[in-house]
Design a binder for these strands. Structure first.
Lengths: 160, 160
DNA sequence: TCAAAATCCAACTTAGTTAGTAGGGATACG
DNA sequence: CGTATCCCTACTAACTAAGTTGGATTTTGA
């Protein structure tokens, strides 16, 4: 698995913030309940997103998180890197700290890893919170059979 | 890290076989020494490649492994899947066994994972052992400063 | 026939990572 | 002042990765 659950939760949370811009600061508790994420775990994740400059936090009662930039300006690449760090593809690539093979300068396998990494980052960079939000809204409309009122965790699908 | 060391070793081994077609069956011991891989570990990996139909084994003394198809017909996607199994990108994708979210049919995040997976498989599918071998040979020529005689594990760079 | 060389197979180990949990501080609102 | 919130560190249980170990089976060659 390339992307951790942490990463998925981070994207869920960011998408939640993007889809509810009028709410003002949203607390971890709220997001955790709406998106079905462990609260304590999400706290850690939001910390990483804040350190990555993707969200701003408001402390104290009535505090919470808001996006630091507009959804158009936040790509999934930003989110993934803030949470998991730089995407590393193989065990033996130029930038990595791991034990590298002796023939690094003439090894073709590292080139493969680099190519794959580039491809992944390109895909993630073209996806913004804004485009994801739009896709989500469109999907909501196209899947009318979806049980909106059943159980918890579906309210967030409706835009504010 | 997306691809395990196992996977890298498997590609190294396959490339070794592709670059030395005249040797006949090549033993695990030989490949392990030439490509700097733990012998016991490589044994496991070759087993996976055999089960995946990418190599054929000859048992007994003078035995070893040979490619089951020509290098043009073996892509890195084949190798990676034989060793690591299907590439899974995120925790929540249609095919996976892991606990999926409730809104799977309308969740956009799984779409992201699918897009990334597709992109990776496309890159890996276009790379064959033959193309990799060619790249390796070209690189050998372009990097004349490379110390060919220093240490072990560089002999394999020269085609048979 | 028999020893050596090889594949084959399954169990074990060790270190690190993942996905949380727990517990307490710091800060701001009312 | 009390409550709700962010903030931070440490801990843990389960899993995975990267081998290691020990042996069984098969084939060649002397």
């Amino acid at each position: 698995m390339i992307f951790s659950a942490k990463c998925e939760y981070g994207i869920r949370a960011m998408l939640d913030l993007a889809m509810n811009p009028e709410e003002g600061p949203v607390g971890v508790r709220t997001i955790a309940e709406r998106r079905d994420i462990s609260e304590g775990f999400l706290e850690q994740i939001m910390g990483a997103l804040r350190k990555g400059g993707l969200v701003e936090s408001i402390r104290g009662s009535r505090g919470g998180y808001v996006l630091a930039r507009s959804p158009e300006e936040i790509s999934l690449a930003d989110v993934v890197v803030a949470i998991d760090g730089p995407v590393s593809t193989g065990p033996c690539v130029p930038g990595s700290e791991s034990k590298r093979c002796q023939q690094m300068n003439i090894c073709v396998i590292q080139d493969v890893w680099v190519d794959v990494t580039d491809c992944i980052m390109t895909v993630l960079s073209t996806m913004t919170l804004a485009s994801l939000k739009e896709r989500q809204l469109r999907k909501r409309v196209e899947a009318p059979g979806t049980p909106l009122s059943e159980g918890k965790g579906v309210g967030w699908l409706l835009p504010g």
